[in-house]
Amino acid sequence: MSATLMERPRADESAYDGDTSGEQVFVTLTLADQLCGIPVLMVRDVLSAQNITRIPLAPAEIAGSLNLRGRIVTAIDLRRRLGLPRVEGEAARMAVVTEQSSELYAFLVDQVSEVLSLSGRDFERNPPTLPPVWANHSRGIYRLAGRLMVVLDVARILALDPVQ
């Protein structure tokens, strides 16, 4: 007997395609007081402060690597990737782990907040006032009560070539 199984989208596929017909679920995070969201299907783990080993000669946005249950994970400093100032002192940062092409990556963020389910009808493409570095790494925005949530594009963030 054969059964068709509904397969969870692979992390290297777009988990958010701008579909306005249903609910979209995001893990929310904060970077320099800016609320951001990553599609929940793209998130594999959320970690508290980790011991990160620096990688010599790596680009500035590569914070180093960490060990997650025996797997090496590349840590990417989202503040540096998005052109934000560095955190003063040794503030504890959290990591959002995602997978792309069978490799694990940890996005270092200031804080991970909650999981939000939002209507696809409320999604908006990037406004022209969004700074170019943010627009190049995001899919669009949601206007929430008193806040703007930027929907981050994992594939664009992981394309570590400088954006022209």
Rank of each mutant, 00 (worst) to 15 (best):
R139W: 06
P59T: 10
P128R: 05
F107T: 02
L68D: 05
R143A: 13
R69V: 10
S21L: 09
G140A: 10
L41T: 10
E88K: 09
T4P: 00
G22P: 01
I62L: 04
V112P: 01
Q111M: 08
E23C: 07
D33H: 14
P132Y: 12
L35A: 09
A58G: 01
E88C: 07
Y105L: 04
H137S: 13
R79T: 06
P127R: 11
S65G: 08
V115Q: 06
S138Q: 07
V27N: 01
S138P: 04
M94G: 04
P56L: 07
A58Q: 00
A15M: 09
L148R: 04
L116K: 14
I141Q: 02
N51I: 09
S65N: 07
V154H: 01
A75Q: 01
D153P: 01
S119F: 09
D122E: 15
I52F: 02
N67A: 14
Q34I: 14
T4D: 10
A91F: 07
A155K: 03
R156Y: 04
V25E: 11
G70R: 03
D153Q: 06
G37T: 10
I141D: 00
D17N: 13
V109K: 00
V27G: 01
R147D: 12
A145G: 08
R80D: 06
L118A: 07
G89A: 08
S119V: 05
I52R: 01
I141G: 00
Q164M: 12
R71A: 14
D12C: 11
L82A: 13
M149D: 06
I55P: 00
F26S: 05
G64S: 11
T74M: 12
L5H: 00
P39G: 07
E114C: 08
Q34K: 04
R71I: 02
A15N: 15
S48C: 05
P85F: 12
R86H: 07
R156H: 05
Q34N: 13
S65W: 01
L160W: 08
F123H: 06
